[in-house]
Amino acid sequence: MALLKLDRVTKRFGGLVAVNEVSLEIEQGELIGIVGPNGSGKTTLYNLISGIYHPDEGRVFFEGRDITDLPPYERAHLGIARTFQISRPFGSATVRENVAVGALFGTLHGQIGVEEAMEVADRYIELVGLTPERDKPAGALTPVEKKLMEIARALAMRPKLLLMDEAMAGMHPKDIDKLVAFLRKVRDEEGIAIVAMVEHIMRAVVGMAERVMVMHQGRKMVDAPTAEALGDQRVVDIYLGRPLEEV
């Protein structure tokens, strides 16, 4: 049984079809890259999975259960976590408090109290290397630190599926490599399926994803193992512009 299954999901905004009959299956522990140009429907797809939007057509399944009509917070309880394209820290709260929110209300919700949540938070803050920043207000972090904080916050939810929206935009290549290595480690250790949405940074896709889905004008154009997907002639023509080796 797939961890997440989208069955011909469609979302329209007025006359614009942002996501057009997209079907997708994600297995437990998979590392997937979703690529596509701006406006190709990637973020809308995330919003459909995390429950911000309700699809106009099609159904969403998580661990075999139809979650199409569940609100976002219930999906989070089941194990769907995400980060945002533009970081959305709870700015006035400290890094530690931010990450503790993830622990308190994620899949562990109802099982742990504030003090245990702080311990969980500390562990993930250390994992992403933000321990020195722990007691700073999250709003005072650098953009890269905010991204790392968001990842720690999402991981503290102990999710089964982590959706990352442009988590690596604006990062130094070295930091990208470090983050990719970190994400692979998290996947190996905790068995979380990770979907990374990437607009431009092919370095991240190639380094991390085992499978790539390419979106174009709201449709799924290609869904294949990374090398095959990025070598696809349509992907080269429409999206990459030239073969990957030259990019």
Partner: peptide, 26 residues
Amino acid sequence: IRGKTGYALMALREDEEAAKVMGINV
């Protein structure tokens, strides 16, 4: 402020949509 409720309220005050996807029944 010190309990779970305070964390939920802080989160939804700062960013309601982010709070929702983090599992908070706002």
